[in-house]
Protein backbone atom coordinates (compact mmCIF):
# COMPACT_ATOMS: atom_id res chain seq x y z
CA UNK A 1 0.00 0.00 0.00
CA UNK A 2 2.87 2.38 0.70
CA UNK A 3 3.90 2.20 -2.95
CA UNK A 4 0.43 3.12 -4.12
CA UNK A 5 0.31 5.98 -1.64
CA UNK A 6 3.61 7.21 -3.06
CA UNK A 7 2.19 7.04 -6.58
CA UNK A 8 -0.77 9.05 -5.45
CA UNK A 9 1.56 11.63 -3.92
CA UNK A 10 3.36 11.90 -7.24
CA UNK A 11 0.20 12.49 -9.20
CA UNK A 12 -0.95 14.99 -6.59
CA UNK A 13 2.31 16.93 -6.83
CA UNK A 14 1.98 17.03 -10.62
CA UNK A 15 -1.58 18.21 -10.22
CA UNK A 16 -0.30 21.23 -8.34
CA UNK A 17 2.22 22.22 -11.01
CA UNK A 18 1.32 24.72 -13.71
CA UNK A 19 -0.06 23.12 -16.89
CA UNK A 20 2.30 22.38 -19.75
CA UNK A 21 -0.28 22.00 -22.48
CA UNK A 22 -1.25 24.67 -24.95
CA UNK A 23 -4.64 25.42 -26.38
CA UNK A 24 -3.66 24.65 -29.96
CA UNK A 25 -4.80 25.90 -32.51
CA UNK A 26 -5.83 28.99 -30.58
CA UNK A 27 -2.35 29.32 -29.11
CA UNK A 28 0.68 28.65 -31.27
CA UNK A 29 4.02 28.10 -29.66
CA UNK A 30 6.78 30.37 -30.86
CA UNK A 31 8.81 28.54 -33.47
CA UNK A 32 12.57 28.59 -33.18
CA UNK A 33 14.43 30.58 -35.80
CA UNK A 34 15.79 27.40 -37.31
CA UNK A 35 12.50 25.66 -37.68
CA UNK A 36 12.36 23.69 -40.89
CA UNK A 37 9.03 23.32 -42.56
CA UNK A 38 9.11 23.17 -46.35
CA UNK A 39 11.43 24.83 -48.85
CA UNK A 40 10.44 28.17 -50.33
CA UNK A 41 12.04 30.41 -52.93
CA UNK A 42 13.45 33.74 -51.87
CA UNK A 43 12.72 37.04 -53.58
CA UNK A 44 15.39 39.57 -54.49
CA UNK A 45 13.64 42.73 -53.32
CA UNK A 46 16.23 45.07 -54.89
CA UNK A 47 15.71 43.91 -58.44
CA UNK A 48 12.25 42.51 -57.86
CA UNK A 49 12.77 39.02 -59.18
CA UNK A 50 13.54 35.65 -57.61
CA UNK A 51 17.14 34.84 -56.70
CA UNK A 52 16.79 31.49 -58.36
CA UNK A 53 18.51 31.09 -61.71
CA UNK A 54 17.05 27.70 -62.44
CA UNK A 55 20.43 25.98 -62.27
CA UNK A 56 18.95 22.56 -61.44
CA UNK A 57 21.46 21.93 -58.63
CA UNK A 58 18.74 21.42 -56.05
CA UNK A 59 16.67 19.32 -58.40
CA UNK A 60 19.56 16.93 -58.89
CA UNK A 61 20.45 16.77 -55.21
CA UNK A 62 16.94 16.15 -53.92
CA UNK A 63 16.79 12.59 -52.55
CA UNK A 64 13.11 12.09 -53.32
CA UNK A 65 13.03 13.94 -56.66
CA UNK A 66 10.16 16.15 -55.71
CA UNK A 67 11.33 19.27 -57.52
CA UNK A 68 10.95 20.31 -61.12
CA UNK A 69 12.89 23.30 -62.39
CA UNK A 70 12.70 25.02 -65.76
CA UNK A 71 14.85 28.03 -66.64
CA UNK A 72 14.55 30.76 -69.26
CA UNK A 73 16.54 33.75 -70.50
CA UNK A 74 16.03 36.65 -68.16
CA UNK A 75 13.90 39.30 -69.91
CA UNK A 76 15.17 41.81 -67.36
CA UNK A 77 18.88 41.19 -68.04
CA UNK A 78 21.26 44.14 -68.59
CA UNK A 79 22.03 43.07 -72.15
CA UNK A 80 18.43 43.65 -73.11
CA UNK A 81 18.14 46.92 -71.22
CA UNK A 82 17.01 45.54 -67.88
CA UNK A 83 18.40 45.95 -64.40
CA UNK A 84 19.33 42.41 -63.45
CA UNK A 85 22.70 40.74 -63.73
CA UNK A 86 21.12 37.28 -63.89
CA UNK A 87 21.43 36.01 -67.42
CA UNK A 88 19.12 33.08 -66.78
CA UNK A 89 16.19 33.07 -64.45
CA UNK A 90 13.66 30.61 -63.17
CA UNK A 91 10.76 30.02 -65.50
CA UNK A 92 8.71 27.36 -63.77
CA UNK A 93 9.33 25.70 -60.45
CA UNK A 94 7.32 23.02 -58.74
CA UNK A 95 7.92 21.36 -55.40
CA UNK A 96 5.70 18.50 -54.40
CA UNK A 97 5.33 19.10 -50.67
CA UNK A 98 3.63 15.75 -50.30
CA UNK A 99 6.87 14.04 -51.27
CA UNK A 100 9.40 16.42 -49.79
CA UNK A 101 11.09 14.93 -46.74
CA UNK A 102 12.39 18.28 -45.50
CA UNK A 103 15.98 17.21 -45.51
CA UNK A 104 17.39 20.66 -46.20
CA UNK A 105 19.72 19.37 -48.93
CA UNK A 106 18.30 21.72 -51.57
CA UNK A 107 19.16 24.67 -49.33
CA UNK A 108 22.68 23.40 -48.84
CA UNK A 109 23.46 22.89 -52.49
CA UNK A 110 22.05 26.16 -53.82
CA UNK A 111 24.88 28.47 -54.86
CA UNK A 112 22.66 31.53 -55.05
CA UNK A 113 21.01 31.33 -51.62
CA UNK A 114 17.78 31.28 -53.54
CA UNK A 115 15.93 28.65 -51.57
CA UNK A 116 15.22 28.50 -47.85
CA UNK A 117 13.22 26.48 -45.41
CA UNK A 118 10.00 28.07 -44.32
CA UNK A 119 10.33 28.75 -40.60
CA UNK A 120 6.85 30.03 -39.93
CA UNK A 121 3.68 28.29 -38.93
CA UNK A 122 2.31 28.68 -42.44
CA UNK A 123 4.72 25.95 -43.48
CA UNK A 124 3.32 23.51 -40.96
CA UNK A 125 -0.41 23.96 -41.18
CA UNK A 126 -0.87 22.84 -44.72
CA UNK A 127 -3.58 20.23 -44.63
CA UNK A 128 -5.54 19.96 -47.87
CA UNK A 129 -8.24 17.68 -49.16
CA UNK A 130 -6.42 16.63 -52.28
CA UNK A 131 -2.73 15.87 -52.33
CA UNK A 132 -2.47 17.48 -55.75
CA UNK A 133 -2.91 20.79 -53.93
CA UNK A 134 0.43 20.24 -52.27
CA UNK A 135 2.32 20.66 -55.52
CA UNK A 136 3.47 24.24 -55.21
CA UNK A 137 4.23 26.34 -58.25
CA UNK A 138 6.59 29.28 -58.59
CA UNK A 139 4.02 31.83 -57.58
CA UNK A 140 3.07 29.99 -54.40
CA UNK A 141 6.70 29.38 -53.57
CA UNK A 142 7.72 33.02 -53.81
CA UNK A 143 4.78 34.94 -52.33
CA UNK A 144 5.90 34.63 -48.73
CA UNK A 145 9.34 35.96 -49.41
CA UNK A 146 8.00 38.57 -51.82
CA UNK A 147 5.72 39.96 -49.16
CA UNK A 148 8.53 39.90 -46.62
CA UNK A 149 7.08 37.24 -44.33
CA UNK A 150 10.18 35.10 -44.37
CA UNK A 151 13.70 36.24 -44.98
CA UNK A 152 16.16 33.45 -45.07
CA UNK A 153 16.88 30.29 -43.22
CA UNK A 154 19.50 30.82 -40.59
CA UNK A 155 22.26 28.23 -40.23
CA UNK A 156 24.80 27.94 -42.98
CA UNK A 157 26.39 24.62 -43.84
CA UNK A 158 29.73 23.88 -42.29
CA UNK A 159 30.50 27.38 -41.07
CA UNK A 160 31.78 27.26 -37.53
CA UNK A 161 29.83 29.78 -35.60
CA UNK A 162 32.47 31.19 -33.28
CA UNK A 163 30.34 33.10 -30.84
CA UNK A 164 28.07 30.10 -30.39
CA UNK A 165 30.82 28.26 -28.60
CA UNK A 166 30.21 28.73 -24.94
Amino acid sequence: MRGIAKSMMTTLSVFLRPPVTRDYPNVHKALPERDRAFPLLLWDQEIDEPFCTGCHACERACPVECMTVLMKDNPNHKSVGGTSSRRKIIDKFWIDYARCMRCNICVEVCNFDAIAMNNTWSGHEMSVHDRKDLVMDLQQLTTQSHSGQIKEWVPVLGKANEESAS
Binding site: P32, E33, R34, N104, E108, P155, V156, L157, G158, K159, A160, N161, E163, S164, A165, S166
Partner: peptide, 12 residues
Protein backbone atom coordinates in the same frame (compact mmCIF):
# COMPACT_ATOMS: atom_id res chain seq x y z
CA UNK B 1 30.70 16.48 -38.44
CA UNK B 2 27.48 18.40 -38.12
CA UNK B 3 25.37 20.22 -40.64
CA UNK B 4 25.63 23.50 -38.76
CA UNK B 5 26.66 24.64 -35.34
CA UNK B 6 24.41 24.55 -32.32
CA UNK B 7 22.70 27.80 -31.27
CA UNK B 8 24.39 30.21 -28.88
CA UNK B 9 22.38 29.29 -25.84
CA UNK B 10 22.88 25.57 -26.35
CA UNK B 11 24.57 24.78 -23.05
CA UNK B 12 22.09 26.72 -20.97
Amino acid sequence: GLAWDVPTNFVA
